[in-house]
Design a protein around this nucleic acid. Sequence first.
DNA 1: TGGTATAGGTAAACGGTGTTGACCTGTCAA
DNA 2: TTGACAGGTCAACACCGTTTACCTATACCA
Lengths: 199, 199
Amino acid sequence: MDRPDETGSGAGPTRGREATRARILASARELFTDEGYGSVSSRMIASHAGVNVALINRYFGAKRGLLTEILREDGVFPGLIEGDHGTLTRRLAEHAVSRLHGEGTALQRALDDSAGDPDLQAVYQGRITTAMIDPLSAYLGGEGERSHASLVAAVMLGLSRVRLVEGATALRALDRERLTARIQALLDLCLEDFGDPGA
Amino acid sequence: MDRPDETGSGAGPTRGREATRARILASARELFTDEGYGSVSSRMIASHAGVNVALINRYFGAKRGLLTEILREDGVFPGLIEGDHGTLTRRLAEHAVSRLHGEGTALQRALDDSAGDPDLQAVYQGRITTAMIDPLSAYLGGEGERSHASLVAAVMLGLSRVRLVEGATALRALDRERLTARIQALLDLCLEDFGDPGA
DNA sequence: TGGTATAGGTAAACGGTGTTGACCTGTCAA
DNA sequence: TTGACAGGTCAACACCGTTTACCTATACCA
């Protein structure tokens, strides 16, 4: 039962509250990655982590809390919404295309695939705003940019939605560079000033 | 098997298998509209329809079958993907904007709001393809147009996703005509030939 | 050393879900 | 009268997430 040897200093405790918490979190991460969120039950996580079911709710409030924690650690668009303004849409487009092709973290893929679950949805609901639209509009230069950020988010979300729901076979069959360019063009159009009546 | 009071010719039978089926369907429609899909249980539908729970699965296979049936009756973009080619994107854009503003059938709104449920997702998975991308690409002129149709679908789905997940407050605050025009421009860009390197 | 407070963990139950299989019943045909 | 059968009922099944009451081993203190 006891684990007397603390192997490393940075690895965190091997027993006690923190260790158990970490074990649950790691198991959840692994199972979510392999099976998707909805298919993994609290009991599966607990048994995989070798702990009691009740501890999940004790430590994370609910199953949803696990998800929140995991997403908080990862970030949604890590490193994309920063850097050179000029290449922002290009970076986002590349990101979208790579997601279309099923690249990215295994966990990301798994969560994309179970993006239907009400829990996941509820958690995303917050994350999309705080991790995507908020920083994007801040990055673009203030609250007035919020509608532009929303449009960008719509295109990005829509693409992953199409992949989820239809497989996006046709899009993935396209020449990758052409597709990236087109998506970038879409994102650029999202960012154009609304005040401009254009042609 | 007498049917003494057939009120109208088109109203269908008032008892027997078909009547029960219709009663379940009507109750489901009403409850889904008022409460959303996930919040309505099989037992609620059965009790509202005054029938036994088991009949739902007998007649529709599962709760999901009810949804399939209801969506099949309604169509996703009724009447949008037909008519003049020149105004297609305009019609779609108007549709998207009206959805952003929470207009449309009460049922449509309710289902938009519960778009998270795995069941709903599974059903949509088929419907998006057969009722949106398929007819759209056919309408546009063949299988080669499938990638364009997918992009259009992405923008449309993404917009409803943003509304679902963030409320789309910023977008709804925009001048309606300007927003419609911008979305139309996005859709037009989706439809442009990929072969054309453009500017 | 003995006593106790407490952090950490457990077992069992609760109320809910969708779904299923065995059973009943009323109506019609022979 | 008898039998078949469509139509309907009931109780159970196997899960789910969550909560409550309880236990146990450790750590501290008189």
